[in-house]
């Protein structure tokens, strides 16, 4: 318990330090706001619409999967600290092997889940598709075919 009192001491010291710096900065810096300065910066243009834009839903998928894996990770922490514990080892000689096999099954399920997400394509970030440029060149496309065949077949 005593150690956590020092945690609180650290927290309070940190907050005081930040408050001190911010207050000091507030005292000595100039403050001359105007409408232009306070407007949202959008590369020099006048800001358009609301800033809470829609973004790629894949971020939500990542967050969901993170929650799943993080919970599995939390189960691993207590296991790691008792795995191969000398007292438990003494109590039953097969403890370590038992704990290890159990955890192999657990990590196996974890890996299976990851493999499923991988195969289903949830981990694929949309890759940029290079636009196909119109071929204005006077050289016909077939002229390159020989070179393509040469390198692609290897």
């Amino acid at each position: 318990m005593e150690a956590f009192a020092y945690v609180a001491a650290f927290l309070i010291a940190g907050i005081l330090f930040l408050a001190f710096i911010l207050t000091l900065a507030k005292w000595i810096r100039p403050n001359r706001p105007n409408v232009e300065k306070l407007s949202t910066y959008e590369s020099g243009e006048a800001p358009m619409g609301n800033a809470n834009i829609r973004f790629n839903p894949r971020f939500y998928l990542i967050a969901l999967m993170f929650v799943l894996f993080e919970i599995e990770l939390i189960f691993l922490f207590p296991w790691a600290s008792v795995f191969h514990h000398p007292d438990l080892e003494k109590a039953s000689p097969v403890w370590s092997s038992y704990a290890l096999v159990e955890m192999f099954i657990f990590i196996g399920i974890l890996a299976l889940g990851l493999a499923l997400a991988w195969v289903k394509g949830y981990l694929n970030w949309e890759k940029p598709i290079a636009p196909s440029l119109p071929n204005d060149s006077p050289i016909p496309d077939q002229a390159y075919q020989k070179i393509r065949d040469k390198y692609v077949s290897k």
Partner: peptide, 12 residues
């Protein structure tokens, strides 16, 4: 410099 610079909090 960090201390002396003017600080904006955007209106929105």
């Amino acid at each position: 410099k960090m201390f002396m610079k003017e600080d904006f909090i955007p209106a929105n």
